[in-house]
Amino acid sequence: MPTPGYTREIPQRYRLEANKCKNCGKISFPPRLVCPYCGARNFEPTKLSDTGKIVTFTTIRVAPGRYAAYVPYSIAIIELNDGVKITTQVVDCKPEDLEIGKAVRIIFRKMYPEGKTGIICYGYKAVLI
C-alpha cells in the first residue's frame, strides 16, 4: 500500500474507528462519506468494540507472497460486540482451534513490510480468548 494511503487509514486500521450515521444510527466500517443504508452524509465518529465472536472462517494453505510464511492460517469473519462484522486473520493458534461462535479479541499486529526497505504496515488481527 502506498504510504499516503496507509497513513490516511491509520484511525480505522490501528484503532477501529468507524462512522455512525446520525440519520439511521447504522455504523459503517471502514468509515464512508455516504451512509450505505440511508444515503445520509452526516456521521459521528465511534470506536468499535475490541471483542467479538467468530461468524465463519476458512483456512488458507496457498497464500499470497506476503503471507506465505504464515500458512496454514485462518481468516475469519468476526462479529464484534457492537454488531459490526470485520474480516481478519486469527493468529497465535492452529486452524483446528477455531470454531464458529468462539470468542476473540482484536489486537494490533504487523500486517506486512513493504519489501526490505519500505514502511512496515500495521493493523488489526484477532486472537482467541
Partner: peptide, 13 residues
C-alpha cells in the same frame, strides 16, 4: 515473537 510481532506491537499490547 510471532511472525507478526515486533517491539511496536508488543509495546502496544
Amino acid at each position: 515473537p510471532g511472525l507478526d510481532e515486533d517491539t511496536i506491537t508488543i509495546s502496544v499490547a
